[in-house]
């Protein structure tokens, strides 16, 4: 497949269980596709250069920086974003509830990426692993508010509460 500069192309992808499509330039990032074309603004951009991890989403189950992928590269793939974590009626999922119960967020900006990254960690380590492993798991997502302590406590609590 080839697309000329400036030409638009239709991208189809599954987001939170629904197939969506958008017509975008090849240069449009996956993050901008989510935010601007699909109105899923829970994926946040803080540095746009892949350092802060605030745009982490799960691509076929694996965490990736949505700011460093082009939307066209997600053709046919399956994404989980923060909007897919709560029940349809808005009831918080267990991990979200643990963040709520343990003050795992302040300004809330890194929270979607933290949740998704923790979600991935708990899938691989259902018992949470050690505190050091939890720290390691979220080390690629920068938070400027919390100092991380209560985020780690939240993930630990979610692990202890079980799936």
């Amino acid at each position: 497949m080839s697309t000329a500069a400036g030409q638009r192309v239709t991208v189809h992808l599954e987001v939170n269980g629904l197939w969506r499509e958008a017509v975008v330039e090849p240069r449009r990032t996956l993050a901008d596709l989510l935010r601007e074309d699909l109105d899923l603004t829970g994926t946040h951009l803080a540095c746009e250069t892949g350092v802060c991890g605030n745009c982490n989403v799960l691509l076929d189950g694996e965490s990736v920086r949505a700011c460093l992928m082009f939307a066209v590269q997600a053709e046919g793939r399956s994404l989980l974003t923060v909007e897919g974590l709560a029940a349809d009626d808005g009831t918080l999922g267990d991990l979200q509830q643990a963040f709520h119960d343990h003050h795992g967020l302040q300004c809330g900006f890194c929270t979607p990426a933290m949740l998704l990254t923790a979600h991935e960690h708990l899938r691989e380590h259902p018992d949470g692993g050690t505190d050091e492993q939890i720290r390691e798991a979220i080390s690629g997502v920068l938070c400027r508010c919390t100092g991380y302590e209560q985020i780690i406590a939240s993930i630990r609590a979610a692990a202890e509460a079980g799936p």
Partner: peptide, 11 residues
């Protein structure tokens, strides 16, 4: 912070 346009090939 957005990239400039480019021609895109996906071989």
């Amino acid at each position: 912070m957005k990239p400039a346009p480019f021609e895109y090939h996906a071989p």
